[in-house]
Nucleic acid binder design. Structure first.
Lengths: 126, 126, 126, 126
DNA sequence: GTGGTCTAGACCACC
DNA sequence: GTGGTCTAGACCACG
């Protein structure tokens, strides 16, 4: 059993949900470098999804450098997840900056942002 | 001439772009309460878009309470934009909370968030 | 009738042949900026190829920035083909450099390269 | 220990990588005429690759005339590597001609080719 | 058994 | 009619 899951009722394409799901597991360190992913057929059977859809998701993940595929052997998590994480963190911060900037134009104050951050980090410190 | 614009190449539906565009103008106070919107056929001609698409956008805006339509007279910005802004601000903060929470799981620190906020508000105070 | 063609006997995937074919037409200036490509279904019928395969090729072309797709309206050549050409030329020169460097290690002389260039440019001057 | 190496992540078949690797060593004169190649099982163990795959590579090398096999004694580099080198050089020049011709259609100039050659031969003369 | 490619046919939102 | 997504089932080279 894997931790990859999809919501069939969602309007976001299934293959994108899988991409996002795997990307998350890798970026959060739950999936380790060079760890093997379930085979296309296995995941297809497990989730009840057509193999083509899984294949499309894996191709996209490979294109993004999250995983690599070795025909005949299977698909594996990129060896250098640290670099992936760093790159992703930068993207995250850029998006966050944009969001906050937008919020500012809609009269959100700096104090509200700070309070929000305090609240979130108070929940569980690590 | 209006400030409503669409990007034909974007993959987000044109009617949604129009909805977002008008919503933004209203929420940022650029469009005032009870101000009249361009007529469906006027905007259709201006943007070179099928009137059906404009109509769909206006219907959605009405459904969201951003604008109201008066039978033969046209469409107008909601009279109480302050309430709209307040409601929108809450939604914004919820989304922001979600984004920040996600960033936290990907090892973004509270300090980075605070620095980001400082930087943004330093740019121009209002 | 378009100029896109495929060789079914070739071992290189059909979708890649289409990608290469369109890329060539664009980079050589035969297809102009914002020119419309045949629709997925039209090209599918013309070449006797499954629509999914065409779709895959078009997706790849879009990913590479060669074309852009506007759902409902069709697919079009990128507006700025000059930039594409420039970028492609750089890649070409890099690959050529690698090839020549390899040739050098296999005892091809500089004179042979120069003669080759002379011969090719003598064929038709432009 | 040999200089033959494979990249498991590459999408080019492993047996082809081995073929190319050996071919290179021979054509560059690093492996001498009548030199013995590692046995199938030795190379299999060294690279951690299925013996069938090694066998397939050696068969292909034999088919191309790069090596010859003597029943129970093993595999050896072709006695006349000079001829091999000459033949390979011709193929190289043909491919190079094709590449340069393609570059020409994409507005690469003769001068750029000449400069490239100059640059490469300036690096180290031999 | 593995990934990669392809066909055939379908449904969807959008315009 | 358009592109985008998905299912079902097939074939291939590779190891």
């Amino acid at each position: 059993m894997s931790v990859i899951s999809v919501d069939f009722r969602s309007r976001t394409p299934i293959f994108e949900q899988i991409v996002a799901s795997v990307e998350n597991l890798v970026l959060r360190g739950i999936m380790k470098p060079d760890e093997q992913l379930p085979s296309v057929r296995a995941l297809s059977a497990e989730l009840g999804i057509n193999p083509n859809t899984i294949q499309k998701a894996y191709s996209e993940l490979e294109r993004r450098g999250i995983i690599y595929s070795a025909a005949t052997r299977g698909s594996f998590v990129n060896s250098d997840t640290a670099a992936l994480r760093e790159k992703n963190k930068e993207q995250l911060l850029e998006k966050l900056e944009e969001s906050i900037r937008d919020a500012k134009t809609k009269s959100v104050t700096k104090e509200e942002i700070l309070l929000l951050a305090e609240k979130i980090w108070r929940e569980s410190n690590d």
